[in-house]
Design a binder for these strands. Structure first.
Lengths: 183, 183
DNA sequence: GGGATTCTGGAGCGATCGCTCAGGTAGTGT
DNA sequence: ACACTACCTGAGCGATCGCTCCAGAATCCC
């Protein structure tokens, strides 16, 4: 192993560029990701972008893969429907920009054949979570989660909103919904 | 009323530009909408774009509003859950490009404050439909519809898939799902 | 016909894009 | 100190962007 100080510095800059890319996507969208915009956000010269990545596109793709990693990991760590509801509520309240950024990247993946596998990872993570939390209602839960995720990008969804929907998914009878809503 | 041939011709070109815009969005995404790209798609000179619309952006916004009109009208015409399921299935099979295009425009609206009302129209149309088809389960149905719509852009959802999810939304007991699945 | 209005479209300006490249800088091994 | 190598960067090229401008063609009103 050579603890080459040069390489270490380089790896640090590479990471800074990736995070700068995510910030730009969150703030202004995928379309705003350009060599110069990311460089300015990361406070490095524009040519550094194309030194660490073969193209601007590959930088974007790498950032997308990283976002997907984080999302899948977050879903994998969810332990219960109540836990899931609080995640959804947090997305809708604090992380709205992040949710929109993820949607933009998701849409990018939906359009490009070479990113199809990233879409699968996303879907598989959702399906696995749904199957784990509500085996008999997995399909509905997966659809509801995706739907709430979409709503989170639109308008503020509160914790009780999300919890109520998930309750309704697994409840034994719709009339029992009168039992309790606010936990 | 004056059947001015000049204005009639102009209105025709204006409409051709709008539909060309939607085709470009469907095929290559919002980012690909440029003065020259739309002009080429509509087979008019580039300067015509900025004659009929004050800016490229306003052309895009007008196209977005039109897409939203169509989507809301389509939802308003749905009569039953079975009907809704067949719509979802058709989106996923034949209209995948259109769905992706609508998502791109939806995302554009989610990011811009001046298009917030279009987002509301979208959500209201979904909520109204859900309340109409399943009054006691409106929230879940709305979330599930949004979730299926998202899945439609990803991977092929069949008619029975959608129907099964909607059945599960309104079914009285999850154990009754054993009754019939493949219909 | 004449004149006003509406539409058409080519030229081109300044800005930005992704990307290339030659040369400069800095850390490494001896 | 030295050459060596890996890392870094400013300048700039060709292409495209949104948009302006203006001269000409088409059409309606009189």
């Amino acid at each position: 192993m050579s603890p080459d100080g040069r390489r270490a510095k380089g790896a640090l800059r590479r990471r800074a560029l990736l995070e700068a890319t995510l910030r730009v996507v969150g703030r202004e969208g995928v379309a705003a990701v350009s060599q110069r915009a990311v460089a300015a956000e990361a406070d490095v010269p524009p040519s550094a972008v194309l030194y660490y990545f073969p193209s601007v596109d590959s930088l974007l793709v790498t950032a997308l893969r990283e976002v997907n990693d984080r999302y899948c990991a977050e879903l994998a760590a969810v332990t219960s429907l109540a836990d899931l509801a609080s995640h959804v509520a947090r997305w809708a309240t604090q992380d709205r920009d992040r949710v929109i950024a993820e949607y933009e990247l998701w849409l990018l993946a939906a359009r490009r054949a070479d990113l199809r596998d990233e879409l699968r990872r996303w879907d598989d993570a959702v399906d696995a979570l749904a199957a784990r939390l509500a085996p008999e209602r997995a399909e509905v839960l997966a659809a509801a989660l995706n739907g709430l995720y979409l709503r989170a990008a639109t308008v503020g969804t509160t914790h009780t909103d999300a919890a109520r929907v998930f309750d309704a998914v697994v409840v034994t009878s719709p009339s029992s919904k009168l039992g309790k809503s606010g936990h």
